[in-house]
Design a protein around this nucleic acid. Structure first.
Length: 271
DNA sequence: CAAAGGTCCTGCTCGC
DNA sequence: TGCGAGCAGGACCTTT
């Protein structure tokens, strides 16, 4: 589930507890995630120190002197820092055991998440190398989105959820941003005026920033690194609100599948 | 049987 | 015919 705000919330929670810490060991209870957890992780990491914790799109990067641990939370993943002797629950697949008796624990019921190790520049890793710009960076601007949209017949909602176009925008925030920009989610990307794409860029930034401020959105699984839910759910304007009145015009919010994903929008004021 | 916050892969169509 | 880009659909997995 986690989209950019939830991953960033997680990063901010774990970074101060991880940076500078030494790895005492690795425990893998289930290595069958989206990709298999590497077999020799313990040998690679034991005794090594975590330098920094960064984020690229929805990936978390734990930087060591000799490489980088990539973690993705998939649809249902969460990370917590716990006492290392906390009994693992059913879907607690991976622990990075730290010194001072703590561990970083990955829980991921659906196992769409990921733990990988790379010794090379992570930006060149196949999973990261083709990612588009960060939505909160300068690189993501009207010129960029207009260039990506040009000539494309794909629904605008699918375009902004394409990580090669811009990273971090998932199913919740795509619906929310399109509502704020008053753009119909199924509209062909290439048929939207530059002025309206400019509004969409601003809307994506605005909704992601506000969600980070609120600690993300919790629908079911997601909690931050201390086990607390995020509070942005209360601020969602359309996502999960089918049948409720549009906050702008009062018409009922609709729910429809676009590109296999549930999409929420106002059929009256989004065009 | 349906749906859930993600992403990758396959195979089709279209235009050059 | 061949090739690449763009796009739709399916696959992965568990729980509610």
């Amino acid at each position: 589930m986690p989209e950019l705000p939830e991953v960033e919330t997680t990063r901010r929670g774990i970074a101060p507890l991880l940076e500078g810490m030494t790895v005492a060991g690795v425990v893998v209870r289930q290595r069958r995630l989206r990709h298999p957890v590497p077999a020799r992780l313990d040998a690679s990491l034991r005794g090594r120190s975590i330098e920094t914790v960064t984020r690229r799109g929805k990936y978390l990067l734990l930087h060591f002197h000799h490489g980088t641990l990539l973690i993705h939370l998939g649809m249902s993943g969460s990370l917590r820092v716990l006492p290392a002797d906390t009994p693992p629950q059913k879907h607690d697949h991976f622990d990075l055991v730290l010194d001072k008796g703590r561990c970083l624990r990955l829980r991921d019921p659906r196992r769409f998440g990921l733990v990988l190790w790379t010794r090379d520049d992570p930006a060149r890793h196949p999973l990261l190398s083709k990612l588009g710009p960060e939505p909160l960076s300068r690189e993501f601007d009207t010129d960029h989105l207009a260039a990506q949209a040009k000539g494309r017949r794909v629904a605008i909602k699918n375009l902004i959820m394409n990580s090669q176009v811009v990273v971090g925008v998932g199913n919740i925030y795509a619906s929310e941003a399109l509502f704020l920009a008053a753009i119909h989610p199924a509209r062909a990307a290439g048929k939207i005026s530059r002025a309206r794409l400019e509004k969409l860029v601003a809307a994506i930034r605005q909704v992601l920033r506000a969600a980070i401020r609120a600690g993300g959105t919790s629908l079911r699984d997601f909690t931050d690194s201390e086990g607390r839910p995020g509070y942005f759910r209360q601020k969602l304007k359309v996502y999960g609100r089918a049948g409720e009145p549009c906050p702008r015009c009062g018409a009922p919010i609709r729910q429809k599948l676009i590109g296999q994903r549930s999409s929420f929008y106002c059929g009256s004021c989004q065009h």
